[in-house]
Design a protein around this nucleic acid. Structure first.
Lengths: 200, 200, 200, 200
DNA sequence: AATGAATGAGCATTCATTCAT
DNA sequence: TATGAATGAATGCTCATTCAT
């Protein structure tokens, strides 16, 4: 029989998922490799079979998880044809997503401010910037499409998209400080109304 | 206040100001006490004459600097009577402030996510939450006052205030990722328009 | 001997030979078991089927290879009857040998100084000391035989044998530092002349 | 009063001396920084105030100690005018030196074979090669001077010097294996006679 | 027997904090 | 009060060894 075999990608994903959560909860600097190992139910050394260093693990974890999250979120919007409906759904989906991955903004900020993420052949911060641009582009496209259809008015699509994304991201902050500072339901309602009063 | 006390306070402020900047630029975990000492032109040991630990220094630095910044910012608004004008100015002042102290959001998020800030007799995160609540209260008061005067419409004042603060805070994020992701001027314009279309 | 035993011995020798070379080139501490496995074209785990530990492998490798090398070298001298000729040949053969296994002295010294070699039921360093004594004894016998035949003069045979061996071993050192520090041809000539001027 | 002050060079020398001895006794790889710290009566961290890394410490220790040893040894020879006497003294001094620093050859070999010593701005192995060349040059000069004075005969001075140095260095090897393999007194006598029969 | 994935003890190094001056 | 040398706990990472297949 063949010796022990592993599905490398599955294992990497196991590690990445746990690393992502532990990093998110405790911050990068405050997370020990052994914490991640424990969370993943493996040993410290094993992590190093799949990732060169803590930094690489962070980078890969952010890259992978942000990608997965975005894919999942955008997937939900794909089917919706109506411009208004789609924008409305975008707001709700993303506010939900950010509740799920509470703390990710903090992790990102720590990663950025401590110049982590210069890993491997990736350009520094590029995929982060990429994820951001991606989100903005999606929103921008939605707004533009709505305008083309005559549902939305003509505005500075790009900047408006940025603001919309920032509104939602920004909500992470009070939420992180103390989750009772903000009532997500009410917030969603206000964001929605604010956005629609603006775009229409 | 005795001259002695003044001296002590002056020194504390010297340390705090430098600590704040170094923390903001490099993140908490990435900052060494010796970096702060060097920035302040004193020796490492001296810091410990004024602050018990790195954590306390962070807490005091955030507390003090956030307070100073808010005071300064709110001071500028005090004089303005007109509700609309005041709200408009609020947006511009705070977007300016956050450019000045770029990175502070990252520091806050790091501090929060790594459970720093549980220092001494302060309740955890209380002054951060306090600062946040303070900002929100100010905005809320502005909106409410405007409504009372019949300039603004009746809305969910509290939640709206939160969203407004989050829009501005949220802009820190793309700015931190890569300062050319966002054009502050245009952003201010859109934020302003969005807010006014909403409140009026 | 059963075919089974032959197989085992063949495999052990495969591992030993490769281990010897890798150890010699990189030093003991600097050699990973995986390096040896790779050199031998087998897997890491397999080594442990034949050797208890890295230390045992080193010990066995040194023991076996030194033995083989000595056998081969002494074999070449066996046939020579003439005392002078034999001594001359000894010098050349051993200087050649040490060029072939450059670095072995370093490995020995490392092994000795780090108290490796205390393996299993072997007495510490005994076979190393044994190999050394063996070499010295051979030379001593040559000198003594030459004296008996009236070709060499009466000297302190034992100590002289030691010195002769040390001269040749000692040449390994500059050779290891930088192979261009010493011209082997010229060195052989001088050693030969020095020895013959002494023994005659 | 001024704060605690140290004589940096004295402290470095304290560390270097202890490091040299511990390295010499146990080998580089087998020596923990804490061993050195303990030997020097200081803490691990303190070593890093004076040396960047274990490798740098090894390099500096070898460089410094070899230099000191050579200076001391050559100093003893300086006064001696007579060529024969000086050469004789050289042999005895160096055989004594190598007894004092028994194991240094092993350390050197380990350092060389594991490519340690590439530290800082020093060229790899250069000072080791330098120390070797220095020793050889001294001997060569002695032989040449003796020949000039008509006391020694004309020989291949350079190669002869190498051989002489190697004889003495080579004695380190059996001595390291088991100090009773070689009787230093007798060895010195034989070396002396062998050398003098050769050079005269 | 052979494999190579998994383990975890071990160690170099960093840096917040202390303390002698 | 101020200093900066000294400390040692803490942690990333390596690699000999084990073990499931």
């Amino acid at each position: 029989m063949s010796p022990r075999t592993v599905d490398v990608d599955r294992k990497k994903l196991l590690i990445i998922g746990n690393a992502f959560n532990v990093f998110r909860e405790n911050g990068y600097a405050n997370t020990k490799m052994s914490d991640i190992a424990e969370a993943a139910g493996i040993s410290k050394g094993t992590i190093y079979l799949y990732f060169k260093s803590k930094e690489e693990l962070l980078a890969k974890a952010l890259e992978t998880m942000l990608h997965l999250i975005q894919e999942k979120a955008y997937g939900q919007l794909e089917a919706i044809q109506d411009s208004e409906e789609r924008l409305r759904e975008f707001i709700h989906v993303f506010m939900g997503v950010f509740q799920e991955v509470a703390g990710v903004i903090g992790l990102l900020m720590e990663a950025i401010s401590s110049d982590r993420l210069k890993v491997g052949d990736m350009e520094e911060r590029s995929y982060l910037a990429g994820a951001y641009r991606n989100a903005i582009n999606r929103v921008e496209a939605m707004l533009r499409e709505g305008a083309r259809r005559g549902v939305f008015r003509e505005i500075d699509f790009h900047t408006s998209a940025i603001i919309l994304v920032c509104m939602i991201d920004g909500l992470q902050i009070p939420y992180a400080i103390s989750s009772d500072l903000v009532d997500i339901e009410k917030a969603a309602k206000v964001v929605e109304e604010m956005v629609f009063r603006f775009v229409k």
